[in-house]
Design a protein around this nucleic acid. Structure first.
Lengths: 336, 336
DNA sequence: GTATACACTGGAACCGTTTCCAAATGGAAC
DNA sequence: GTTCCATTTGGAAACGGTTCCAGTGTATAC
């Protein structure tokens, strides 16, 4: 039932020094005699003193909140990224993670309005959200911002290498002996993000000397329903694929359902590969391409810390996904 | 590339009034002549002034951060609760949502240490986490705390009515004509939280005049594997149940898998009902008992707001779940 | 016209820290 | 014992608000 904690002045009095000295001990402590530091530390200990971050934030130019903007954060990938960011946040640093969920244009506007002017902020991480036009001009430049999993010309950004991911998955299926490999994605346009997996898919086929067939590629939303529908279309071809690579786990789930409807055994009659490694994938034994979220979060935090330290940080090149082999692809390792 | 925003003094000068008057206009504005208020508002507008929350927090006793402590926030239920809290947070109120993910005893300790002393905090929402011993004594009493989805004697708490949830699900299956209803939960102990669903199940059976059978009840972890194993055990009984009520969706997924293994059609040969309504449930068409997360979040926020206003708020009684009918239970509504 | 009450307003003090500057201290060199 | 310089130290000022108090202005009552 603490009425109110000790303040820096109380520590100074108890230690018999000035507040400036206590402050110096608190922050790095250079230029303080060892014996003096001891006295101060003892006083801090005795009073159970913790610096009040409010006062700190006011005097220092910097705030102490890390704002994470994230769209639809109930989606598994985003939750996983959030968790990774949470773990990458140094504890006891005074930094606190704040989250804004963005699910509509209004919310996006509000979120970036806050991001542009709130002085409590020390840094901003924008996940899969490209800052709106005019944001760069309106914002406080002393608060570093990094964009994750989205392109940006105005701001430093870290992305996943989806072309590589597309190649990785396709090569895996090729390696298992498949030559008729279907692809269900959301776009084939190499200039939009969602089309990059398709680019990788095509590259891998070409490199392996396997013909790319137009009828083996279908595009639709990242949803179970679309995966189901597109998979049925592929399976009903005169010469159906023996493996299907879906650009999202949700679509892959639909593919599994389509196989069941057509009486096909997975992976014996049809190999299925997903993308994202959402939680669900593990439950249904779906092999999938996993995005390196921890790495992403680590780089993001490193970027912020470097910026605070005044360094001119450069974000790394796109991060490469890895392959998670489970039952659905029939890899030798699990005897499917 | 804003160098630095306008301060309250700039507004005062432009409006030709004192800073005190600007402050009064900013906060409620009682006791300010209408014409004066207009001048001030115009100046605020012109300068694009936003009060600096750092200074505000320092002078007012209250912080402006709402801290949410949540265990394993990647789990769907918690994400959904977080989202509900996010939506229940009044925008433009200056309050920001901060999240701490707790996945280990160390993290819990650190989280509550922060919660007990950080002056930036305006309120604390502890989700499924009972504050540790000694916390009540150590914390700042002027920061309201509410516990969600966990019992607490020391602090106001809002819980879900799991007994009701157990009855609700069981009654639904009874209403569909089932008399041999299996239950797969995590505990039968009426004194632990995870056992309450089993209590409701038993109550509903008894009230309907249906015998409660020991062999129809199995307990294990909230996981797909345990659901699968326990479902197989039930289905291999001499007189197997025609419906299975699982105390978690994860276990229910396992039940669906068990049905498939035994060649049973769902819902015709076996009706399946889950609990929680996680995202996954929708994908697989699982009927389930849904916990009212939005309501929970709304009450939590109302509690905090009432506390800030100085009112002596009482949390409401346990919140009642609702039934979500999909394909897996064979309710008439979808002709299963 | 004056007294009185009341509504409104200006500005100093304060919240808890960091930072800056001047002053004090200590030790080395002579 | 002085002198000089580098190191250490104390404390005032500043950060940007809110709050309080005293003072001004206005209206009402007589």
């Amino acid at each position: 039932m603490k009425e109110r904690g000790a303040r820096i002045g109380d520590v100074a009095v108890l230690a018999g020094v000035g507040v400036g000295t206590v402050s110096r001990v608190l922050n790095g402590g250079t230029g303080v005699r060892a014996s003096t530091r001891q006295k101060v530390l003892r006083a801090i200990q005795e009073l159970g003193y913790h610096a009040d971050e409010r006062g700190r934030a006011l005097r220092a130019k910097r705030g102490n909140l890390i704002l994470v903007l994230v769209p639809f954060f109930t989606r598994n990938l985003y939750v996983e990224i959030l968790r990774a960011i949470d773990r990458a946040t140094p504890p006891d640093s005074g930094y606190i993670l704040t989250v804004m969920n963005v699910e509509s244009p209004q919310e996006k506007e509000r979120a970036f309005a806050l991001a542009s002017s709130d002085t409590r902020l020390a840094g901003i991480i924008s996940v899969s959200l490209t800052p709106p036009d005019g944001f760069a001009a309106a914002r406080r430049t002393d608060v570093p911002l990094i964009v994750l999993d989205a392109p940006s010309e105005e701001f430093p950004a870290i992305e996943f290498d989806h072309v590589y991911g597309g190649r990785l998955g396709t090569n895996h299926l090729l390696g298992l002996g498949h030559r008729r490999i279907g692809f269900i994605g959301r776009s084939q346009d190499p200039f939009v993000r969602s089309g990059l997996r398709a680019v990788g898919y095509r590259q891998a086929l070409v490199e392996a000397g396997v013909a790319w067939r137009e009828e083996y590629v279908r595009v639709g939303e990242y949803s179970r329903e679309h995966g189901l529908r597109d998979a049925l279309a592929l399976l009903d071809l005169p010469e159906p694929p023996t493996a299907i690579f879906a650009a999202s786990d949700l679509q892959a789930i639909g593919v599994l359902e389509a196989a069941r409807l057509r009486g096909l055994e997975v992976p014996d009659d049809l190999a299925v590969l997903g993308y994202n490694d959402m939680e669900l994938a593990e439950y249904v034994g779906l092999s999938t391409v996993r995005l390196p979220r921890d790495e992403l979060a680590r780089y993001a935090m490193e970027f912020l810390e470097a910026s605070w330290a005044g360094a001119l940080a450069r974000p790394p090149s796109p991060l490469r996904p890895t392959l998670i082999v489970r039952r659905s692809c029939g890899a030798a390792s699990d005897g499917g």
